[in-house]
């Protein structure tokens, strides 16, 4: 009985939260849409970079050329992916460093594929 009430209360709170979130989503509609677009693009870009790096090491210009992405943008992604542990910096070749997928991330990639 008591439990039931609690559940009901929780349910009610859940409902209220859901409604509030809905309203918030409506309020932030344009921001959310822009962010979603951004996220999709980023996902695509990162996927392209990872695909390119699968089984090989490459420099920023090499990756950029292979996936037809501006070099500065490629570096921006690479720096970020390195920070979040998805890629690793390898040895230097000429004036550029080579990068490869990190071990832990390769397994993830495989799992996704």
């Amino acid at each position: 009985m008591e439990n039931n009430d609690k559940d009901k209360g929780a349910d009610k709170a859940k409902e209220a939260k859901k409604a509030a979130m809905k309203e918030l989503r409506a309020q932030r509609k344009t921001m959310i849409a822009a962010a979603s677009t951004k996220m999709k693009e980023q996902k695509k870009d990162i996927k392209a970079i990872k695909k390119n790096l699968n089984g090989q090491t490459a420099t920023i210009p090499e990756i950029a050329e292979a996936i037809d992405m501006p070099k500065d943008k490629t570096l921006w992604y690479m720096a970020t992916m390195k920070k979040y542990g998805q890629i690793v910096e390898g040895p230097k070749e000429g004036v550029f460093f080579k990068y490869f997928l990190s071990e832990s991330d390769k397994t993830q990639e495989k799992a996704e594929v």
Binding site: D72, L75, V95, F96, F97
Partner: peptide, 16 residues
């Protein structure tokens, strides 16, 4: 820092 080393922002080259 962003690259953990000094690289050129346009293409990741180590500047000379």
């Amino acid at each position: 820092g962003p690259y953990n080393r000094v690289l050129r922002p346009s293409d990741g080259m180590e500047p000379d």
